[in-house]
């Protein structure tokens, strides 16, 4: 990978940013704004019921006396949940972005302009994938940082009013550098975990004659229905292997940076809470992140993704305006 390749990738990724300002800039800005708006409204309503804020300030003073690990647990929970909506909607937007990324320019014929530039089809596919896995999450991460900072600033105001030290009560227990690093790494591991689904959408986007997102959903849905129908007819039971459910499971067991870190023992059909520690580690931590990287399912998924991406590049090479 030469310097020229890096420059080309950079230019191509900037193009994606220009093409989709709604997905990259406005959506995270609006969600962050709404989140903060609802927090302020909730506080204002609270202030109405609690004249002079007596109960609120009392609660803050009590909170300041709590043991350190309890404060860390609470702050991590508050900050994770304040940015939860951002990262959940991000996944949805990534899916729509990927479904359209190799389709839109075929539809409006601008593919003829893009193909007149000395950029290989592999490079094009790579730029769109990296945009979805790194660039797009980066914008939502920045929005999350801003939400976290504003939440902490509001808390600081309340803390000062309650006469507690906001640094030791709110800021230090939040451990922002650790929190942000774990979320950032979490987004990367999550992208890697969802890579087969991302690649499937790009694959459909590269050849679908119209509405690639519907085609991307209809194919696994149709296959699962056929599987179900066949196995109900042949063995009077549900199939052991179902592509649609496997794809849904992939989402369910993904690690949106708000998922609680509990190992659910699915064969025992009950949640196993024995190892759960009630500390900030409950939400997300480095060891579970890297634990995901050791799972064989992770790397099987990556291999499937690579095959689908090669398919997307193959179709892209043959794609023109009709």
């Amino acid at each position: 990978m030469s310097m020229q390749h890096v420059k080309t990738l950079g230019a191509l990724m900037r193009r994606e940013l220009w093409e989709n300002p709604g997905t990259f800039k406005w959506t995270p800005a609006i969600i962050a704004g709404l989140t903060l708006f609802f927090i302020v409204v909730a506080l204002a309503i609270g202030a109405r019921f609690d004249a002079e804020l007596a109960f609120t300030l009392d609660a803050i003073r009590t909170f300041a006396q709590e043991p350190a690990d309890q404060r860390r647990l609470f702050m991590a929970g508050a900050l994770y949940s304040s940015s939860a909506l951002l990262f959940q909607l991000m996944i949805l937007l990534v899916l729509f972005y990927l479904a359209g990324c190799l389709y839109e320019d075929r539809k409006d014929r601008s593919i003829l302009f893009w193909k007149s530039l000395p950029v290989s089809d592999h490079m094009t596919v790579a730029s769109k994938l990296l945009t979805a896995c790194l660039l797009l999450p980066a914008f939502y991460l920045i929005a999350a940082f801003i939400v976290h900072l504003v939440v902490l600033l509001i808390a600081t105001g309340y803390g000062l009013a309650a006469g507690v030290n906001p640094i030791t009560t709110f800021w230090l227990p939040s451990a922002l550098p650790r929190l942000w690093l774990v979320i950032a790494l979490g987004l990367i591991v999550q992208a890697l975990w969802l890579l087969p689904i991302y690649a499937w959408l790009m694959f459909c986007s590269s050849w679908a004659p119209r509405v690639p997102i519907l085609i991307a959903i209809a194919i696994p849905l149709g296959v699962s229905l056929l599987q179900h129908a066949w196995s109900l007819l042949s063995v009077f039971g549900f199939p052991d292997f179902n592509i649609g459910l496997i794809m849904l499971m992939r989402f369910g067991t993904g690690l949106v940076p708000t998922n609680l870190d509990m190992q659910v023992d699915s064969t025992a059909h009950r949640a196993d809470f024995t190892d759960v520690q009630f500390s900030e580690e409950l939400f997300m931590n480095f060891s579970t992140l890297f634990g995901h990287l050791l799972k064989p399912e992770m790397w099987i998924g990556v291999v499937i993704a690579l095959a689908l991406l090669a398919g997307a590049a193959w179709f892209r090479r043959r794609a023109t305006d009709n």
Binding site: W18, E19, D105, D108, R109, S110, L112, F113, W114
Partner: peptide, 12 residues
């Protein structure tokens, strides 16, 4: 090359 109708990306 220039194709038969203008194909520059319309959003840009």
């Amino acid at each position: 090359f220039i194709a038969d109708v203008a194909v520059l990306p319309r959003w840009a």
